[in-house]
Design a protein around this nucleic acid. Structure first.
Lengths: 342, 342
DNA sequence: TTGAAAGCGCTAACAT
DNA sequence: ATGTTAGCGCTTTCAA
């Protein structure tokens, strides 16, 4: 109310009004030392009165830092994406860094344009998720640009980059083993989008579990999906119309498991009495469908939080890229039961 | 590869290398007229060779614009939030503006801090969603700050602000009327979070429909929810354990409807044979539950897109705040059927 | 503990 | 069609 209409107060206005130099004002607003508390208070007070807010662009220019982090994702599941965002944001809280979101519709669009986008937005660093973070072209581009970046849930065989993962293969193995232990012998899998490295790893874990139990994986029991509900629904229909249909279906994520569940409902096949269905991720959706999904809890929120932590360290202190592997859990709910007899 | 390591090329480097003034380089990189195509090409080429990318902070400082839009929301439903984001982003594509997300956990935290947050992030404008956009304190703060802002899905009785809405009252009326026409007489409602204006409007529409049909609304048939799945589940349980339980339940959003559905499943009440359940919003979740929800389609994506459009116009040309009312649709799926006889 | 001066890298206004 | 000169509002030396 004190400042002129249409014109924000600058550091100079505050300096003049407080009778100090602009450097002192700068010190105060950046919590730097070497200012008498008396003056500090005075400056703060004048700043308040003038409704002074440091100009972000000017500060960014002088500091050579935008305090902007970009989150790049493709959108297979709203619940998953939300977890990612909230996890990243949690770590960012109180740091002065902000989160910019970049949903990518078509990977081809971003290939070769990733770094330009980062420059055009002035990002200090980026968080990249599958499938982009496993795309060799994109990875190369990122690597040679020397931009700080971190990968979430990507391929764990690439270790020269910062990344946070879980052991997808082992998790899928455990999940399949659980289903096997319930007595199922005829088990199908709905595979995730093949450009996601995790989809392949989960398939491998599934197969290994079957082989370990003395069952040879059967092509007809491996249906390609795309990590979407719709693809799960379609895969479920195909699988359940099969002459010799499976007694258990393992979906590579919860959205597809929900789709399979819907296919079962359509065909009036009771779950888990006649059919067991399990998911992967334990997103919010897992509890919203009926019956609630037995699934693998992938700590997406924590992974994003941790990834952001690693990224921030890279940006601020230029440390070498770190890697972290978080643990998963088997969450037993009500969508899987003992194999039907006969 | 041509530029020195660790130092980005500046406009001056390009100008020197291309043998022109920095202003010409600026013209080329901003697609301004008055540059011979010959020179234009030369500058572009040199820019590429030097791996030149205009410095965003410098540009922002000179232009007095950050090209940053903030989206403030509270997170009742992941699917809803994702729609909002995607809608806003669609309009932003190609404009050079970026989207910053601000999930608000606790409204009290943001009350009185909204404008500071905007300044601290250097936002050019903000998109605000319920319930924040209906909070008088927050609205006042925004209004007196003269920051460009637009409200999505807020209270339609406030018309001096830019906003995009649907007619929640009429939509709820139509939805209830549809259920009444199916022969239901004992109809309950799960009310949304009361701090959302839309929750109240939907309740009013529901009541009006009942009265129009000659039914007096009954307190026991109006249960308070919070727009979350869990609150819908709990409300459903209460309603269905009721001695004289309803034959139809109207939930104020899809997440709560999914919760009600789950309660029905728990109690082995067949939907829609013995119980009809309808939702509101038509988010992605509506199709993922069983049976798929009959619901009101609120065009969240389009609303966000439109709101962003209005906001951009305010920012760029300083036009007066506009208002838009979009239409809703009744989407008939499989969760509501004729009232059970007897 | 404080301040003056010199940038940060760009665009705007105004020549030419 | 092109260039020159001031800023934009901060932070960073470096001096006092």
């Amino acid at each position: 109310m004190t400042s002129k209409i249409g014109k924000r107060a600058t550091i100079r206005d505050v300096a003049k009004a407080a009778g100090v130099s602009i450097k002192t004002v700068s010190r105060v607003f950046n919590d730097e030392p070497n200012v008498r508390s008396e003056i500090r208070e005075k400056v703060r007070h004048v700043g308040q009165k003038l409704n002074y807010h440091p100009n972000v662009a000017a500060r960014n220019l002088a500091r050579r830092r935008s305090h902007l982090i970009g989150l790049f994702f493709e959108n297979p599941s709203p619940a998953y994406v939300t977890e990612l965002q909230m996890g990243a944001l949690k770590r960012l809280r109180g740091t002065g860094y902000r989160l910019l979101i970049f949903p990518v519709e078509n990977r081809a669009d971003i290939r070769g344009a990733m770094v330009s986008t980062v420059y055009a937005s002035g990002l200090d660093g980026v968080i990249v998720t599958p499938p982009m973070c496993d795309d060799p072209v994109i990875l190369d581009e990122l690597l040679s640009s020397h931009l700080p970046f971190v990968r979430v849930a990507g391929d764990n065989s690439i270790d020269k980059t910062a990344s946070v993962i879980i052991d997808d293969e082992a998790a899928a193995f455990d999940l399949a083993e659980y289903v096997l232990r319930l007595g199922h012998r005829r088990i199908a899998i709905v595979i995730g989008d093949e450009t996601h490295r995790s989809a392949g790893l989960r398939l491998m874990g599934f197969r290994r579990a079957l082989r370990t139990a003395g069952i040879e994986p059967e092509p007809a029991m491996e249906i390609q999906g795309a990590f979407t509900f719709q693809s799960g629904l379609e895969a479920g229909r195909r699988l359940l119309h099969h002459a010799n249909r499976p007694t258990a279906i393992l979906a590579s994520n919860d959205d597809m498991a929900a789709g399979v569940l819907q296919a079962a409902h359509e065909l009036r096949i009771p779950v888990p009495q006649k059919l067991s269905v399990v998911g992967f991720d334990d997103t919010a959706l897992a509890k919203m469908v009926w019956p609630q999904l037995t699934t693998i809890r992938q700590p997406v929120f924590e992974m994003a939080e941790r990834a952001t932590d690693i990224l921030l360290r890279q940006i601020e202190t230029g440390t070498a890229p770190e890697t972290a592997k978080l643990s998963y859990d088997l969450v037993i709910r009500f969508s899987a039961g003992e194999a039907p007899t006969g």
